[in-house]
Amino acid sequence: MSHIKIANTEHDVLDLIKNRWSPRSFSDKVIPENDLHTILEAAGWAASANNEQPWQYYYASKGNDGFVQITESLFGGNKPWAQHADVLIVAVARKTFEANQTENGAAMHDLGMANAHLLLQASALNIYSHMMGGFDRVKISETLNLTENQLPVAIIALGYLDEAEKLEEPFKTRELTPRVRKPLSEFVFSKN
């Protein structure tokens, strides 16, 4: 089934990028702790403005209270399938620079870079990920005791791939639909 999710690219993109996609069907297989730490460390090696590294990750594994609390913050379109992931990670951006407490305008960008590293490292380990923006930010902030300087940006589901047939609609159809992206002509503009 995952072969239909391999990106059909116009140019010779890395296989690691072509093969990364966001499933909703996760198996019961547990991610080894060392692999999880490898995935999280990969995030830490992303580029960041002034080497600020404004990303923070809070995670919980299935079967723990923290996992249930993170799941409870998810909106209805994510909760039915995300509760079957092995790990849920909350990606948080620290909004100010540590040195002088001024606004870090690159914090969200830098967290995005770290998230991309995380997703690709997971893919390299044959662990699948699904980013979610559909969650209650106030609720998760309270659950994690975040400060005003911490912005929860995304929740990431991690796990091993399972069969699409175990999903209910509309998730099953989404799982079985080939990936598509806009062509370069729609988002790249030369000013030469």
Rank of each mutant, 00 (worst) to 15 (best):
D15R: 13
K139R: 12
E163R: 09
Q69W: 01
N126K: 14
K29Q: 15
A85E: 01
K79I: 13
M113A: 15
E41D: 14
T102M: 07
F171G: 01
G133C: 10
M113K: 10
S61A: 07
P170H: 09
H84R: 09
Q121F: 01
S123C: 11
D65C: 00
G63P: 02
I89Y: 02
L158Q: 00
V188E: 02
P170M: 05
A164Q: 03
W21R: 11
L36A: 10
T102K: 11
K18V: 12
N51M: 03
E142G: 10
M113F: 11
L118H: 04
K5S: 02
N126I: 00
A49E: 08
E186A: 07
E142V: 10
P54S: 05
A60E: 01
M113W: 04
S2G: 13
G134W: 10
G134M: 08
F171P: 09
W21I: 06
V92S: 03
G66S: 02
N8G: 02
K191N: 14
Q53L: 03
E72K: 11
I31A: 09
A157N: 01
D28Q: 14
Y58D: 01
T173M: 13
I155K: 05
W45Q: 10
D162N: 11
Y59W: 10
K29G: 03
N51Q: 08
V87A: 05
F75D: 07
S73G: 00
K172M: 12
R20E: 02
R24H: 08
I156F: 04
T143F: 00
A124V: 00
Q53P: 00
A107M: 08
G133A: 15
S129M: 05
T9D: 10
A82P: 06
L151I: 01
E10T: 15
Q101D: 11
I17V: 15
E33N: 11
S73T: 14
R137E: 15
I127R: 06
N104G: 09
A82N: 02
A7L: 15
N149Y: 04
N192A: 09
Q83V: 10
T38F: 00
A46D: 03
A47N: 06
T96V: 15
P152I: 01
N34R: 02
T173K: 15
A154K: 03
L118S: 06
A114Q: 02
M132A: 13
L111I: 10
L158G: 03
P170F: 06
G105C: 08
A46S: 10
A107Y: 04
N192C: 01
P23F: 04
A157W: 05
L111P: 05
G105M: 10
K79F: 06
E168N: 12
K191F: 13
Y59T: 04
M131Q: 15
I17F: 13
N100Y: 09
Q101V: 00
F75L: 15
A42E: 04
N50M: 12
I70Y: 04
P23R: 06
